Simulated scan of single mutants.
Amino acid sequence: MRMAELSERSGITTATIKYYLREGLLRPGRRISATQAEYDEEHLRRLRLVRALIQVGRMPVATAREVLVAVEDESLDRHTRLGAALWALPDGSSGAGGSDADAAHEAAQLRVEDLLERLDWTFARERRDESPAYRMLVRAVAGLSVTGYPCTVEDLLAYARPAAELSVVDLDMVERYEPGSEQVEAAVALTVLYEPVLLSLRRLAETEESNRRFGSGD
Results as ranks from 00 to 15, higher is better:
A88R: 03
L137R: 04
G92V: 00
L137G: 00
V146P: 01
G95Y: 10
A108D: 03
V153H: 02
Y134I: 07
A142C: 06
V197L: 14
R118P: 00
G180E: 05
W121C: 10
D120F: 05
A160K: 08
V184C: 01
D120H: 13
A164P: 09
A103S: 14
A187G: 12
A186P: 06
M136W: 05
P179G: 03
A103Y: 15
S94M: 11
G143S: 02
L89S: 00
V197D: 08
E178S: 13
P162S: 02
L190E: 15
R125Q: 14
G143E: 00
Q109A: 15
F123K: 14
L137W: 00
R135C: 06
L110A: 15
R139F: 03
L116G: 02
V138C: 05
L137Y: 01
D100G: 09
V169L: 10
R139N: 05
A124E: 07
L157F: 02
V192E: 10
D114T: 08
A88K: 06
V112E: 09
L137M: 04
V153P: 01
H105E: 15
V112A: 03
D170K: 01
D120I: 07
R176W: 15
Y177S: 13
E106P: 10
D102I: 10
S93N: 02
Y177N: 14
L198C: 15
L199E: 12
G143P: 00
